[in-house]
Amino acid sequence: MCGRFMFEPNENEEIKRIYQLAVDNGYEPKTGEIFPTDKTAIVSAGDNQVQVVTMKWGFPGFKQGQSIINARSETVMQKTMFAESFMNRRCVYPTTGFFEWSQDKVKHRFNYGSNPETLYIAGCYKVFDDGPHSVLLTTAPNESMIKIHDRMPLILQKNQIKRWIYDQQFAIDFLNSSMPMLTAVKSE
Rank of each mutant, 00 (worst) to 15 (best):
S73H: 02
S73G: 07
E74A: 09
E74P: 02
V76Q: 02
M77C: 02
M77F: 06
Q78C: 04
Q78K: 11
Q78T: 13
K79C: 00
K79I: 12
K79E: 03
M81D: 02
M81H: 00
F82N: 13
A83V: 07
A83S: 08
A83K: 15
S85T: 00
F86C: 13
F86E: 10
M87T: 06
N88L: 07
N88M: 08
R89W: 05
R90P: 02
R90M: 11
R90Q: 00
C91E: 05
C91S: 09
C91Q: 14
C91Y: 09
V92H: 03
V92K: 06
Y93F: 15
Y93N: 05
P94Q: 04
T96K: 03
T96Q: 05
F98M: 05
F98N: 02
F99W: 01
F99P: 04
F99D: 01
E100M: 06
W101R: 15
S102G: 11
S102F: 03
Q103W: 06
Q103T: 15
D104L: 05
K105S: 11
K105E: 09
K105L: 15
V106M: 12
K107V: 08
K107A: 03
R109N: 09
R109Q: 02
R109H: 15
R109K: 08
N111A: 08
N111I: 13
N111H: 12
Y112A: 07
G113F: 01
G113H: 06
N115S: 04
N115Q: 09
N115G: 12
P116I: 09
P116Q: 01
P116S: 05
E117F: 01
E117Q: 11
E117Y: 11
E117S: 06
T118F: 06
T118P: 02
L119R: 04
I121T: 08
I121A: 00
A122Y: 10
G123W: 07
C124M: 07
C124K: 10
Y125C: 01
Y125F: 10
K126A: 12
V127W: 10
F128K: 09
D129W: 00
D130I: 01
P132S: 14
H133D: 00
H133Q: 09
S134V: 11
V135R: 07
V135P: 08
L136V: 05
L136Y: 03
L137M: 03
L137V: 12
T138E: 05
T139L: 10
T139M: 07
A140W: 08
N142K: 01
N142G: 15
N142W: 13
S144E: 04
S144R: 11
S144F: 14
M145C: 11
I146P: 10
I146T: 15
I146F: 06
K147E: 14
K147R: 07
K147M: 02
K147L: 06
I148H: 04
I148N: 13
I148K: 04
H149Q: 07
H149D: 06
H149I: 06
R151M: 03
R151H: 00
M152K: 03
P153K: 03
I155M: 02
I155S: 09
K158G: 08
N159E: 14
N159K: 02
N159P: 12
Q160I: 11
Q160C: 11
K162I: 11
